[in-house]
Simulated scan of single mutants.
Amino acid sequence: MSNSKITLPNHYILQIINIVSDLGIPTEGWLRHLGVAPNESEESLITMPWATFRQLLLDAGRFCNDKALGLLIGERLLINTHGILGYAALSSGTTRQVVELLERYLVLRTDMVTMESVQKGDRLWVSFYENRPLEDVRRPVTEAIVLAIRNILDFTTMGTCNISEVTFPFDGDEKLAEAMFRCPVAYNQDAAGFSLPLATIDQPLKLANTVSFQEGLKVCQQELEKLSSEQTWAVRVRRIMLQSTHGFPSLEMTARRFHVTPRTLHRRLIEEGTSYRDILEDVRHQLAIRYLETGQMTVQEISYALGYSDIANFRKAFKRWESVPPSMYGARLSS
């Protein structure tokens, strides 16, 4: 993680800085110390080491003396702050189309989380999963993204998106969150997400514009293809691992997907300060935490899903990651 970088819209970074600045706290020296120099053009992108972004959030939270930093950021991320993705969402025909659009193209704004939806009973559950260990900035990042998505849905439906429940897998300011989401919010739950009623997600939206939507969708797809070609090898390998549904592909199979030799792929990963084994270890760690948080799988089932032939090896690896066995970690989540 220490060698990784993160790319975000400049506007997102500016919102963090503005929250601190609005409190009357000078930011010039702070930003200079971090090496952060946001561009005055809010439409640009800014790339920085993950460690710098993490410290930016930790500092901002300390300056604000407020656990609700993520909610304060998310409140400012309205539909017009998301570039072409916001434009396409604005023109979508139904709420379901908005959700599907965001699922596919959220990566154009941030690759820190993945958004997934699934139908359960009479509701569509939208969940958010970490694409990298967010460590001690998990709460502000997740809250900001979920609230930003809610803002998009709220605008496209003209305030009638009917989100009835929001959940987060950590502690937080429930009273403030409910005021911002305008619905019940529960912290310390299994996962981050919210639900929408199936009865309304296919109703036509008043702002729908088929031509504008198709134009926006075309640009989103072009941007996604461009992003894929510009991403580091480590990011591309990680994505293949996370998208795999039948076990993790070997180094050889992954190299074949990229039309390079295993030796070339190995060399390029080494040049980026990582390796196939390191990425696999990190993905297994991330998924193990996700599976335990859902509470739907046994330790043995998780071990099998992560490709361990012996559950003892999984327990040993998990204790190396979290300093406690997986059973104890799961018990803490459920207590």
Rank of each mutant, 00 (worst) to 15 (best):
A186E: 09
G121S: 08
T156E: 06
R139W: 05
P169I: 12
L224M: 15
F194E: 08
Q203G: 07
C161S: 12
T157D: 09
L205Q: 04
A192L: 05
L198A: 03
T157V: 02
T200Q: 11
E130W: 01
C220H: 05
G121K: 06
L198G: 15
E223M: 04
Q119H: 14
P140Q: 15
T160G: 07
T156C: 13
Q189D: 08
P169A: 04
V185I: 07
E225D: 14
E143G: 06
T142Y: 12
S195H: 02
A177G: 01
G172M: 02
T210F: 11
I145G: 06
C220W: 10
P204N: 12
V185P: 00
L124R: 11
G159W: 09
A191P: 05
F213H: 11
L124N: 07
G121A: 05
M115H: 08
E143H: 10
V146F: 01
Q189V: 04
F213P: 00
P197Y: 03
E165F: 12
L147I: 13
F194L: 13
A177I: 02
E135N: 12
W125C: 09
E223P: 07
L176C: 03
A148Y: 00
Q189L: 07
V141L: 06
P169S: 08
D190A: 11
T200P: 05
Y187I: 10
V211G: 14
M115S: 06
G159P: 15
E165N: 13
F155I: 12
C220L: 15
Q189Y: 09
T160E: 13
K120A: 14
L217I: 03
R150T: 06
